[in-house]
Each structure stands twice: as C-alpha cells, then as structure tokens.
Design a protein around this nucleic acid. Structure first.
Lengths: 190, 190
DNA sequence: GAAAACAGGTTAGATGATAACATCAAAGAA
DNA sequence: TTCTTTGATGTTATCATCTAACCTGTTTTC
C-alpha cells in the first residue's frame, strides 16, 4: 500500500479536479471523492495536514510530530492503509517503531476524527472533512482500492426510521459499500 | 460467547414470539429479530438447520457433518460468535480442530449464505433467511450483543441512488448499526 | 476402476491488536 | 523556579485473527 504509492508529479499542476466535462460531477454530500486520475497529490496531502493542524488547535488536541507523520502516511495513498504498512514505513525512517506506536497514533487520529477505520478491510483512510459528528459512509472500489466518503443524510434517515420501528437506538453507523468506481468500470475492470 | 449460552428450557413452549401486546411488533422486512426474552431456542436452531439442509440440497452444495455442526454452533447463540470460540467448542468434542477447520467451514457457510460475517466485530451470525442475493444489514445491540438482520429495500435503494450519481456499481453492502435494542433500553442499559 | 475434484488434517506463519510497565517531556501548581 | 501531574512514547511480551501450503482420504465423474 504505502510502498506502491505513485510518485506524484509536481509540475502537472492542473486543478485537483479535472475541469473538463466530468461524467460524474461530484455532488455536495461527497466528503472525499474518488481520485481524479491525475492530480497534484502533494497538495492533497498538505491540505489535509493543514486542516488537521487547525482542528487540533481548535479542540486543544496535540498533533505531535509522530501523530502528524502517521496522518501524512495515511494520506500518502488514496486507498486504505494497513496498520502494519504504516509500521513498516515508520520503521524505515526511525529506529523505534513497534505496533503500539502506530496503534496509539491511529487511536488519537480516529478520536480526533482525522482518519476513519474501514472495518471490512482492517484499514484506515484519511477523513476528508475532519470534525466530530459525521459517520462513516464509504464506497470502496474493489478494483483500484480507492475509497470515497459520503455524508448522505438520506441514508442515516432511512436507517433511523428502520431502527425506530424496532425501538432500537442508533449509536454508530458502519456503512461500507464495495463495488466498482466509475473509472474502473470505464476501463472494464472486473 | 458459546460458553455463556443460556440453557434453553424445553417446556416453556410458548410461541417463539410472545403473543402479548408487543411494544415493537416485528415488521416484515426483519429477517432475524432480536431474541424474545423467552423462546424455545432448540426449535430456533433446528429450524435453521432444516432450512440449511433444504437450501444446500437445492443448490447442490454439500452440507457435511462438520459444516452442519459449525452452523449449529453458530446458531447456539443469538449473539455473534467468534471463530476461536467455535474452534474451542469443536475442540471439546473432537480431537482434531485447528483454525483452518473452522475457517473453511465458515467460508462454505458464508458462500452458501447460511451465515453472515459481522466485520465490525470479527464475528459470525446465522442468517435468518438463507439464500443468495440479500445483503447484510444489521442492528447490533452493544449491551446484550444480540443482532437483528434487516432486509430494508429502502436502504439499498438510497445507497443505489447515491452510488449512481457517482457512477459507482454496487456489489456488496456492509451495513452494521451499533446501538441499544428495545429491551436493553427499557431496562436502562447504558 | 482411474482420474479429477473436493473435504478435511496438519504445520507453520503472516497479520492485526493490546496489556503492562518504563521513561521522558510538557503543562500547570506551589 | 522547582515540584507535581499528566500525557506521549518506548519496550517487551503476548493474544487474537486469519491464511498458505502441503498432505491424505473420500466422493464424483467419466
């Protein structure tokens, strides 16, 4: 995952989202869209880190160098990243890196709402719109591995209605939809 | 899980669902409801096994003694069962029981649609309405551990609509809603 | 009855996650 | 400032979950 990251090309400074006639314009409820084929991923990552700095400052949380570094590694890829891949990446750049190092950082980032855990993959993705309250709704492409994050109130509303009828009190929603993203369908991925 | 199963009382042969004025009558889209406090669980399990026999016969799959036994162990409890609890239970009744024994049986049962995997718990539950095509929608009570399975077309429809707008082709839905069931709320569980 | 396909046993190990305790640094109180 | 408390991380060990690979025996199919 981490190892297979495509080296981003700094000079391809098109807009982050292609300006041509997109076949599937990104609706407003999409917190994190599928990766445009070519985009300046450096910008993508640094934007995420800036947001993280801001939200941590605002909430009085300490985004330490280690935590920030783990967040950066998570954002390095648009596909979910495994804890042990993070561990390996950390191990390459510093002496000390044991499982608790990574898991503690991830716990912090999860709690701060900066990353999400994808239960069906045992993996983690950066959150496109950090902050409390929004729940995980994900579309996961099984071909390219990319994840899009939704915040679809209609979905939560439907769930709430269904739960209501059974007298069930909703606390946490795990919604992970696996399938094929538009790009992979177009190029005929299975 | 397996170890903490309540011994079912064979003589309490009320109906499986209480006939009194239920506060939350079970709607039709509920494939597997929260356990009524008292029900003849033996009947519950044997019904599941009969259904399994039937669907396997119909589809030409071989529900071997081992697979059938694992399915029975899964159904022993209305809460999701962990693979290693199954392994321990098997180990008590036969010599040979290693992880692959259980995981292979579970793979078969998953494929046959006889059990579901709850990704957020790394655990398995029996499927209330075996057969292909229906996707996992679960309400999970964090207090008593019981799981209800839904087949709420409105939910799938909402997801389909959302995916459609992004050109995403849905293949598999993982919907796991954690919270409190009616019973646990009533008795004031946290 | 031989070949092929399938079920299961067995060994080993990869991957995922946590407990428990030690150390050091930052933040707040005296 | 110095002391004290809290929080972050290092370190070791272990538990939990899942899979690969290879082998044996049993059905199924031809």
């Amino acid at each position: 995952m981490i190892t297979s990251k495509k080296t981003s090309r700094p000079r391809a400074s098109k807009l982050a989202r292609p300006s041509g006639p997109a076949r599937h314009p990104v609706p407003a409820h999409v917190l994190r869209s599928f990766t445009p084929a070519r985009h300046d991923h450096r910008r993508c990552v640094s934007a995420a880190l800036s947001k993280a700095d801001a939200t941590c400052n605002a909430s009085g949380r300490r985004l330490t160098p280690l935590r920030r570094r783990v967040l950066e590694l998570v954002w390095r890829s648009h596909t979910p990243v495994k804890a042990y891949d993070l561990l390996a990446a950390l191990g390459r750049e510093r002496e000390q890196a044991a499982p608790p190092t990574v898991y503690r950082a991830l716990d912090f980032l999860l709690e701060a709402g900066l990353v999400h855990r994808i239960a069906s993959l045992n993996a983690f993705v950066g959150c496109g719109e950090p902050g409390p309250g929004h729940t995980g709704q994900f579309l996961i492409c099984t071909a390219c591995g990319t994840v899009a994050e939704l915040d679809e109130p209609a979905l939560s509303k439907t769930i709430a209605a269904s739960a209501e009828r059974l007298g069930f009190e909703v606390r946490r929603e795990t919604i992970e939809i696996a399938g094929l993203c538009a790009g992979c369908r177009r190029r005929g991925a299975d």
